[in-house]
Design a protein around this nucleic acid. Structure first.
Length: 526
RNA sequence: GGGCCCGUAGCGCAGUCUGGUUAGCGUACCGGCCUUUUAAGCCGGCAGUCGAGGGUUCGAAUCCCUCCGGGCCCGCCA
C-alpha cells in the first residue's frame, strides 16, 4: 500500500472530518522542496475523500514571522542595503521589490499560490498575519499566557538552559521600529503585553518600551506554541512537515504536549519528510538555491513533479537535477504511464506503480490511454522547427505518433514547447545546436565531400524521402562518391551547423525546409 | 549529545511497512534486426555473497539486535 493511503486509512480510523495542514514561512522564493508540504497534504486529502470521508487541505503562509536574513535575490546589489533595514520585521510588513506585487509576501508567495491549481492542488489558503490581526488567535494567546508556566516547563524538559522565570510565549511587534524579533515580553494584562525592544543576535533593538494589543496583531505566539495553537484553531488532524521539526525534543514533540496540556487538543498525525536538494545542495529560499513551480512548468509537465514526490517515501532524500537527469525522470514517468494503460502483469509491484501513477495525476486519471512523444526526441525536434504542423507530420512519419487523438497532439505540442525551453535553459552544451542561416565561411571540404553533398542535393530535389530512407541514402551516396560515411556525415553537419556532429541526419534533415537544405548543399559543393 | 535516512548488478534506483515462486527496473555494456546508423526504434544477452555478523521463522533484502560505511537534521530561531 502506498504511504499516502496508509496515512489516509489511519485518519479515517480516527474518524471525523480530516483537516490536513501544510505551511511555509515566506523566507524567499517558494521552491519545489516546499512543495512536498502542500503536495503531500493535498494528496492525503484526496486519498481520504476516495475512502468516502470528508477532508480538507490547507496551506498556511507564515507571513508574520520575522525576516532573519535578507533572501536571495534581494541580498544582491542596491536592494541589499534597502532590505537590511527590514531585518527582524514581520514579513507581512516588508515592501515588495517589484511594483507588480503588493508586498514582500505577495512577491514571493503569489507565483507559488497561482501555480498550485496547475498541479492539481486544491488547498484553502490562510495567512498567519491575518489570523493575528483579525483576533482569531486572541483566545489561544490568552490561554498560552495564562499557562505560561506549564509551557515553560514543557519546553525546559528539552532545554539545557532553562527559560527565565518570567518568560512569556509571545513576541510583540515594536510600535516604534516595527521589528518583532527584537522584543522581549515583560508582562501581560488583559489584552495587552508589555514589551521592551532589546534586540537579537542579528539585529539591534530600538530600546522602546510599550504595550501591544495581542487581539489585533500586536504580538504573535512563539513558534513552538503557535504551531499547536494553530492545530486547535483550524482543527488540524494531519500535517506534513520538514524533518527538522521531527527531531526528538523538536517542535512537534513539544507541540504535541502543549496541544494536550494547554489547548486540550490531540496533535495531528505527523508526516515528516526529507529535503530536496539540487546539485548536491539543499534547496534554500534564503540562500537562493531555488527551483520554483513556475520554473518547473516551463520544462516539464506538472505530473512529473507529483511523480517525483510520490514515487518514493517521504523521508527519503530527493535529488533534483534540471539537467540531463530530468530526462531520466521523465522517461521513467512515461514508462509508468504506459504500463498503467498497458495492462500486463499483476503483482505488488505493479499495484504500487499504478497507485503512484494515479497520485501523480493533476486531475482524474484519463480513461483513454495516453501516449507521449519521447522527450529526448522532442529536444531535437524543437530545435529544428517551431512549425507545429510540420512537427506533428514528422512525429507521425517517425511513428512517434500513431493515429493521434486531439489530446495526444496537444500533449505532443506541449512537450515540444517544454523541451524547447529545457534546451535553452538547462541542456548541456553538446545537446544544443542551431541551424546556421548562412553557410559558414571557415570550413573546408574535400572534393569528394563536395561531390557527396551535390549528389544529395540533386536527389533531394528529385524525390521525397522519409527520414529513414534519407538516412540510409546518405550511406549509398557516400559509397558512390568513394567516401567513408562519417566523412559525408561530417560534411552535412559542418554546412548546416558548423560543427562535426549533430542529431541523426534522417530526422534532422527531414525536419528542415527541403529547399533550404538543397540550396545549402549546392552552395557548399561549389 | 540526540534523532533520521541510505547501503540491493559498473552507475542510478524499486522492492522492506503487511516475510513466501528462479530479487526487479532504468542506464551502461555486449549481440542482433530495421538495405549500411553519429544523439531514434525494436529484440535478446551479460551482470547482484540484497553493507557485515548474529537472532526469530518451515522460510528473511523484508522482522529484532549489534557493528561498519556514507549523508542529513536538531542542540534551545522557526
Amino acid at each position: 500500500m502506498h504511504w499516502i493511503d496508509a496515512v489516509a486509512q489511519q485518519l479515517v480510523k480516527r474518524g471525523g472530518k480530516q483537516v490536513i495542514a501544510s505551511g511555509i514561512s515566506i523566507s524567499g522564493h517558494i521552491h519545489i522542496g516546499h512543495s512536498n508540504d502542500v503536495f503531500i497534504a493535498d494528496a492525503v486529502r484526496r486519498a481520504v475523500e476516495e475512502l468516502g470521508h470528508e477532508a480538507e487541505s490547507i496551506w498556511y503562509a507564515d507571513d508574520y514571522d520575522p525576516m532573519r536574513r535578507v533572501p536571495w535575490p534581494l541580498n544582491e546589489g542596491e536592494l541589499a542595503e534597502k532590505y537590511k533595514q527590514y531585518l527582524g520585521f514581520p514579513y507581512v510588513n516588508i515592501p515588495s521589490p517589484d511594483p507588480g506585487y503588493r508586498s514582500f509576501v505577495d512577491y514571493f508567495s503569489r507565483p507559488f499560490i497561482e501555480a498550485l491549481p496547475l498541479f492539481g492542488i486544491k488547498v484553502k489558503i490562510y495567512s498567519g498575519a491575518e489570523a493575528y490581526r483579525s483576533g482569531r488567535m486572541a483566545e489561544a494567546i490568552r490561554a498560552a499566557l495564562e499557562n505560561a508556566a506549564t509551557i515553560r516547563s514543557i519546553l525546559n524538559e528539552y532545554r539545557d538552559r532553562p527559560l527565565p522565570e518570567n518568560w512569556l510565549p509571545v513576541d510583540a511587534v515594536c510600535e516604534n521600529c516595527g521589528r518583532i524579533s527584537t522584543t522581549r515580553a515583560i508582562s501581560w494584562r488583559g489584552d495587552y503585553v508589555t514589551y521592551r525592544c532589546e534586540g537579537t543576535d542579528y539585529v539591534a533593538g530600538c530600546g522602546h518600551e510599550g504595550e501591544a494589543d495581542y487581539t489585533r496583531g500586536g504580538a504573535k505566539l512563539t513558534w513552538r506554541v503557535e504551531w499547536p495553537a494553530r492545530w486547535k484553531l483550524l482543527g488540524v488532524t494531519c500535517e506534513p512537515f520538514g524533518k527538522d521539526h521531527a527531531v526528538r525534543g523538536g517542535s512537534y514533540d513539544t507541540g504535541k504536549l502543549i496541544a494536550k496540556k494547554v489547548f486540550n487538543y490531540e496533535a495531528p498525525y505527523p508526516i515528516p519528510y526529507e529535503w530536496v536538494s539540487m546539485k548536491g545542495k539543499r534547496l534554500s529560499s534564503s540562500r537562493g538555491v531555488v527551483f520554483t513551480l513556475k520554473q518547473w512548468l516551463e520544462i516539464a509537465e506538472p505530473e512529473i513533479l507529483r511523480y517525483f514526490i510520490f514515487r518514493s517515501k517521504p523521508m527519503k532524500a530527493k535529488e533534483f537535477d534540471p539537467g540531463l537527469t530530468l530526462l531520466d525522470l521523465i522517461e521513467e514517468y512515461d514508462l509508468v504511464e504506459s504500463a498503467y494503460y498497458g495492462g500486463g502483469e499483476e503483482g505488488k509491484r505493479e499495484e504500487q506503480q499504478r497507485r503512484i501513477y494515479e497520485l501523480s495525476q493533476v486531475g482524474q486519471v484519463s480513461k483513454t490511454p495516453i501516449r507521449r512523444i519521447p522527450y529526448r526526441f522532442a529536444a531535437v525536434l524543437a530545435q529544428v522547427t517551431t512549425d507545429e504542423k510540420k512537427s506533428i507530420e514528422i512525429l507521425i512519419s517517425r511513428k512517434m505518433l500513431v493515429n493521434p487523438s486531439e489530446l495526444e497532439i496537444k500533449l505532443a505540442l506541449r512537450r515540444l514547447e517544454l523541451a524547447r525551453n529545457w534546451v535553452r535553459e538547462y541542456a548541456p552544451e553538446n545537446l544544443r545546436f542551431k541551424v546556421l542561416e548562412q553557410l559558414p565561411s571557415g570550413i573546408s571540404l574535400t572534393p569528394k565531400q563536395k561531390q557527396g553533398l551535390r549528389q544529395l542535393a540533386e536527389d533531394l530535389a528529385q524525390r521525397e524521402f522519409t527520414p529513414v530512407e534519407l538516412h540510409n541514402h546518405v550511406y549509398s551516396v557516400a559509397e558512390r562518391a568513394g567516401l567513408r560515411s562519417d566523412e559525408l556525415f561530417r560534411a552535412i553537419y559542418l554546412v548546416l551547423l558548423g560543427r562535426e556532429s549533430g542529431p541523426r541526419v534522417g530526422n534532422f534533415i527531414s525536419a528542415l525546409d527541403r529547399d533550404f537544405v538543397i540550396a545549402r548543399f549546392r552552395e557548399a559543393s561549389l
